[in-house]
């Protein structure tokens, strides 16, 4: 339940991965993660291949390794949960370092650990190499309804502004000595949440008026469509291709 993620992950670089069309990267990310998700957990080597493939892409994208590792911390609460699985899991039990754990539970923990880590790395790669407006354009290219991506674009545009309002309210409260420690001291926070909603809504109405003033009739004009080349699709297909091939091989090996 990590909060406070106001900043996007984009890392400014000029790598081949950055240059790929966003729709291509989105499709590749989903393809890769899906392939990982269906890979049988017993094929540990398969996950090693997937991880190696991702490592190559991270390198190509010139993302700092420390940055990727730090962002992986997002999944820590779930990893903690994964470590509990062998203890609460059922099924045949084995002794590990003198503690009795569920064997199927161990596999379950490994499954979550491997897939969550690989999946999060893919997400970090996507977000780290693609600016948010591009991601939204890519979504529109992949037939996500334009209304949905337009709403998301407005959210991104006004997020910093509203978060800034929030920070100023916080500062004002702190400046007057407000330091809540218990739930029943939360009234000022909740009240400012209400005030923030009103401000946001009124902002929405003013923005709407500004849009009308420039001829808006209810449909966002389609701007700047970038068509991806066949070459881009082919290049982007390599990593998910490797993952899919690995998954299929793993299936066959375990048959």
């Amino acid at each position: 339940m990590g909060a406070g993620h106001a900043h996007a992950l984009y890392v400014h670089e000029h790598s081949p991965v950055h240059r790929l069309a966003p729709q291509v990267k989105l499709a590749a990310a989903f393809g890769f993660v899906l392939a990982v998700a269906v890979t049988p957990r017993e094929a540990m080597w398969a996950f090693a291949i997937d991880a190696a493939a991702l490592a190559v892409v991270v390198r190509l994208a010139r993302l700092p390794v420390a940055f990727v590792l730090a962002r992986l911390a997002v999944i820590l609460p779930f990893i903690t949960f994964a470590f509990l699985i062998p203890f609460v899991g059922s099924g045949e039990r084995v002794d590990v370092l003198g503690v009795s754990v569920s064997q199927a539970g161990l596999w379950g923990a490994w499954n979550v650990l491997a897939k969550a880590t690989l999946g999060a790395t893919v997400s970090i790669l996507l977000a780290g190499t693609t600016e948010i407006p591009s991601i939204l354009r890519g979504m529109a290219q992949l037939r996500v309804p334009e209304t949905f991506t337009a709403i998301a674009a407005f959210m991104i545009r006004y997020l910093e502004l509203i978060a800034g309002d929030l920070r100023r309210m916080r500062t004002a409260m702190t400046a007057r000595g407000y330091d809540p420690r218990w739930l029943w001291q939360a009234r000022p926070i909740a009240t400012s949440a209400g005030a923030l909603f009103i401000r946001s809504y009124e902002r929405g109405e003013r923005v709407h008026a500004a849009m009308l003033s420039r001829g808006y009739t209810g449909t966002m004009p389609a701007l700047d469509r970038r068509v991806a080349t066949k070459r881009e699709w082919l290049i982007a297909a390599i990593a998910p291709g490797v993952a899919t091939g690995t998954a299929i091989t793993a299936f066959l090996a375990l048959m």
């Binding site: 948010i132 545009r157 006004y158 923005v207 500004a210």
Partner: peptide
């Protein structure tokens, strides 16, 4: 308020 006027990503 320019923030009302400028609502697009770029």
């Amino acid at each position: 308020d320019p923030d009302d006027q400028l609502f697009m990503p770029t």
